[in-house]
Amino acid sequence: MEIKFSQLTKKYGDYTAVAVEDLHIPSGESFGLVGNNGAGKTTLFRCLIDLIEPDTGFAMIDGKSTQESEQWKHDTGSYLDENFLVGHLLPEEYFDFIASINGIRETDLKARLQSFEPLFNDEILGGKKLIRDLSKGNQKKVGIAAALLADIKVLVLDEPFANLDPSTQIRLKELLKQLKHDRGVTMLISSHDLSHVTDVCERIVLLEKGKLIRDIRTSADTLRDLEAYFAQVGNGIGQEEAI
């Protein structure tokens, strides 16, 4: 499913959190968002999944504004932060619930959870810990798995690699690539980890103070370019000229 942002702005007082004039993400694209803290990555994602009301403009999934219609909820899996987790449930109960609201049968659920086992690494299922008592990394695994559980066509993940252990980071990357390859899921991923995001995403957009300042097709040089850019930012050199 394609995604469109149009004339989208969000201000907090005088501070402009997001000002994206026009951004089009075609169906099946893996799209990476990078930028320093406060660049507006999370705000942009929240606007997309209708958690924040934009001041102007709109975000569309499959041609429908996410503000107007709730249709996107059927096709979109998202995980931004712990606010997406129901802390007083066991991971199994949470998955069970997500499956039931998405009409996934019990046998299917089992098979799907099985496919996350490399990600879980035996730490999630079968334990006696409620989600709120899990470590940050394990909470993230639960959140990401829940976002991937249904037959989604759009995936939105904020900082999926942060807090994960190295093995899981690598497995997650594989899982995401596979998801794109097998099911053609449109993916929006924000990350501070430049090497991971360039590895997973075919297109990278650089956000700075809410504005879209670079739109790059990933190539062999992308990682080096991005690193050069971020090394320069704040060194007194104009950001526009940095790359």
């Binding site: 999944i49 209708d50 958690l51 709730e70 909820k73 059927h74 979109t76 998202s78 931004l80 932060d81 712990e82 606010n83 997406f84 987790l85 129901v86 802390g87 997500i98 609201i101 998405n102 709120r132 249904a150």
Partner: peptide
């Protein structure tokens, strides 16, 4: 309050 974003984004009317 702790999981309201979940309430808003899940596939439940």
């Amino acid at each position: 309050g702790t999981h309201f974003d979940h309430v808003l984004t899940r596939n439940v009317s």
